[in-house]
Computed example of a mutant assay.
Amino acid sequence: MSEEKKKKSNQFTIMKDDSTDGHGGYGVGSISLENISPVIIDPNEDRAFVDMGAMHARSEVERRVKFLPNKEEVPNGKLYWIVWVTVEREDTGAYYHGVTGCEVRVDRSIKRAYKSMPEHVNHMDKSMKGHVIVDHMDERSKQLLGDFLRDFDAEMWENSAEELKQALPKQ
């Protein structure tokens, strides 16, 4: 697949409807996941991509492995990050609202992997609330994430908070 086709297939899910738009009907006050997308950071292959399968623990890196609750049980696991990216819209346009990274370790040779489910749930929630939590990520992964977000949509990057720009500086 060409690089251009790959880039076009990596699409963020942007909010379509607001469940609290004043109609007062079913779903008012419910949480909508329509504006959050999982970005997979693979520092082993120097790539970053959107994989909506991660919403249900079915991303490319999560398939065909059994998850274990202890990192020590996957000592030779390759490092990946699932980064929850929330997009919001203001009068000035769309912007990256929340960005939170969660570690995943995968050892394909033993078909085992590690991730903390509570961390993923909490970080997804914090992303939707506008938090930026990437300081625990390695520098290469932060660089890949920052480049991906800037390249994906420069205008959304420019509209984003300074906190995000400081957390993912351009190298």
Rank of each mutant, 00 (worst) to 15 (best):
D21E: 11
P38V: 03
G22Q: 09
A54K: 01
R47A: 05
V87C: 04
V28R: 13
T92V: 15
D42C: 06
T86K: 07
E73G: 03
E88H: 09
D51G: 02
G24V: 06
T20A: 15
R58L: 11
T86G: 08
G25K: 10
I82L: 08
P43N: 09
Y80T: 03
V28Y: 11
Y80Q: 03
V83P: 00
A54D: 03
V87N: 02
K71S: 11
G29C: 07
S32V: 04
K78H: 06
A54F: 00
N44S: 11
G24S: 02
G77N: 02
A57R: 08
W84M: 04
I82V: 15
W84I: 03
I82H: 01
G27V: 12
I41V: 14
P69C: 08
F49N: 01
P69A: 06
K78R: 13
M55W: 09
K78P: 00
V74A: 03
V39L: 00
E34T: 13
L79C: 11
T86V: 08
I40P: 00
A94K: 14
R89S: 13
S30M: 13
A54V: 03
R63Y: 08
N76T: 06
G22V: 10
V87I: 12
I82C: 10
A94M: 14
Y26V: 15
T86H: 08
Y26N: 13
T92N: 14
G77L: 03
S59N: 05
W84V: 01
G27S: 12
V28N: 12
F49Q: 01
I31K: 11
H97N: 10
S37C: 10
K71I: 10
I36N: 03
E72C: 07
I41E: 00
E62D: 10
L33I: 14
W84N: 01
N35L: 06
D42V: 06
P43A: 08
M52Y: 04
W84F: 06
Y80H: 05
E60C: 04
N44M: 10
V61N: 09
G93M: 07
F49L: 06
D91G: 07
W81A: 02
K66N: 12
T92C: 09
M52W: 06
P43W: 02
T92P: 02
E60L: 12
A94H: 15
Y96V: 11
G77V: 01
V50E: 00
E34A: 13
P43T: 04
V61H: 11
M55L: 13
V83Y: 02
Y96R: 08
S37V: 10
E34S: 14
I36H: 04
R63P: 04
G25S: 08
Y26D: 15
E62S: 07
W81R: 00
P75D: 07
D21A: 13
V61I: 15
E45P: 00
E60P: 01
V61E: 10
K78M: 10
G22D: 11
H23C: 15
L79T: 14
E62V: 05
W84G: 00
